[in-house]
Design a protein around this nucleic acid. Structure first.
Lengths: 203, 203, 203, 203
DNA sequence: AATGAATGAGCATTCATTCAT
DNA sequence: TATGAATGAATGCTCATTCAT
């Protein structure tokens, strides 16, 4: 039955969307289920037809949002072959999305710092995939002798994601923003690719 | 005697210490005042003689811990004049402290993502100072023509701190650690200083 | 079609049967309508086509089960004319049924202690009839000068039923049973008929 | 500190007393913690300083009330040595207490049928002791050749308690009562001691 | 200053019942 | 008749904070 499927899917989506908004606004612990229900225009109990509990909602929101990010970034990167440009694309896309969707930025902040404390057996699958996009780019660059061989992709991916995340953290907490996405993306891309050292003066 | 008072009594210290431990273990929202009181071996009510409320404790813990970090890093950097080595020292010290003191790492994670939501008029003073150590190093390097002129210190400090923070986030959530502090510090320092690009082949 | 209707459909029976099982297992307050629906293999909503509410189900179950008991006991007693033996038959049959059908024993326990609190205008008709079997036996015995004239049948029926009920209560709560139905029935029958006093020594 | 002890004891007592009243009036499952708190004139949370949970309250009420009964009955029985009279005293006292204290009768009804379902590892200690008063009387009578040797005290105690309990159940559910305590006690005592059989006609 | 008993607002979750299909 | 998704009222329990001692 298509209409039934659609309806179910609709409620699920509505709750996810509402939750993203509410979590972003109030933080996970201060968000009440009734806030989400109100925002989604469903009854409190309805939420429990689609999610097991409050944490499950947070998890679903996170996985869903990151999943979308993975898709979008992957699509963008398919058109590019140069690891240098690929890294820049990743950086720019990430910052652009965080700036555009403040809720998403917040949910990432919350989720990464809270869920693991609470749900021991959970593995952020989509998130791992997202980070692995970065390490894949680095490995590709290393194979093509474009990136330094001694870079550890596992550390580099953390350094890059962490740097981006801290920048978007500040954005999501301030109303005014000092830099544009393009400025910031260019800077960060340069920092990670060229380093901050001035090129040796070849005199 | 509230947390703003300069005079810091024995009880005050005990409560701060206990809070750091409890927040780190349970997270801010899951920590109970009675947990802290028990850990500090004082009565629940005693805590309110030294702090205004639960958030005030979190803030004090954060400021105190970061303050100590500022002191230690500053002391270390005084002995060094080369911005390249100074940056490496900062990176190594930060990672070393986070590895040694998992509680501190946790509190930073929590505090940075929660307080601003809850206490609108709060400015993390010690934390700003801590980040400004990084931007000061970068500015110094730029003045001495060692670091590239087009680096924006305000963005670079975020990128560097964020990178370090993400690495220690993973450390504080896993029991096993893949890399030693030295390995990681060397990597991160190289990434930020040299970039990941392979040096041009001077053939 | 509500429970008051005479026509009893297949669904109605299935729900009654399922309810008996579920009430006995979980107790009335801990039994969920959905449990009953699942057990009866009907939809939750279907139950409300046959019963007004949860209490109505309990009532129906009780009346139905006691009604069956009345029928069976009545049938057994028709073959006997001696009040002494009739009483023994009643006692033995009651204990045998309670032992065989633990669910029934539980439902009696629950119903007798709960319904009157909740449904003020309800009279347990089948149950009254059941107890009156006992008082009828006693009256018959009195008319035939077999039972003492000063026995008040209204009290005796309570004493006898209560005694039996307490014995089956313990049975339904323990896994192991100390006495067999026959042992217990013989004992109880003797206690009520002969009393516990030793016969006067006619020396 | 005596005053502190007294206060603690006071709150505990107040809550027990209030609970007995509320459970009796509404039944365990329909009683709200806030009802009890209101009745006891304490805050909801205060209840949890003295009891672990709602079931714990029920248990405590039951144990306390039965404990008091044990004490009183024991005191009464100490003055008597004839098992026949002792049994009559027990019966009369039980019925008198149930009639006087309808709440107690209700709580016994509720507790015996509910707790064992919910708290598997609980043993009604005071209640066992209470029932054992009856079996002790019977054993004493048997030793003195006053009661029949073939009576099983373990079954007799159930039969007697059950009979009494059923009578008081009806009392606690009706407003009008057909029989006085004395009438009922005399009847029940006679039924259990003499049996209902008419004495053989010694012609 | 210190205590810890007392407070009571707050909230996630359940589940009997309804009703559109 | 039958379904089961949706509803939303209801409540046990927690815990930050207060305050009498």
């Amino acid at each position: 039955m298509k209409s039934s499927d659609k309806q179910v899917s609709d409620k699920h989506k509505k709750i996810i969307k509402a939750s993203t908004k509410v979590f972003a606004k109030k933080g996970f612990f201060n968000a009440r289920i009734s806030d989400i229900a109100k925002e989604a225009k469903v009854a409190d109990g309805t939420i429990y037809l689609y999610f097991n509990n409050k944490f499950d909602i947070l998890l679903s929101v996170f996985e869903q949002e990151i999943g979308r990010l993975v898709e979008q970034v992957t699509a963008l990167l398919e058109k590019e072959d140069d690891p240098r440009k690929m890294l820049e694309i990743f950086i720019r896309k990430h910052l652009a999305e965080m700036k555009k969707n403040r809720n998403l930025a917040e949910v990432i902040q919350i989720e990464l710092r809270q869920t693991n404390k609470l749900i021991k057996d959970y593995r952020n699958n989509q998130f791992s995939e997202y980070l692995n996009i970065v390490s894949a780019i680095i490995k590709k660059g290393q194979q093509e002798k474009i990136f330094r061989q001694d870079i550890l992709p596992g550390i580099a991916k953390r350094a890059i994601f962490g740097g981006l995340d801290e920048i978007s953290r500040v954005w999501s907490q301030k109303l005014e923003t000092t830099y544009t996405v393009d400025e910031a993306a260019k800077q960060v891309s340069d920092i990670f690719q060229l380093g901050i050292l001035a090129p040796a003066d070849p005199d």
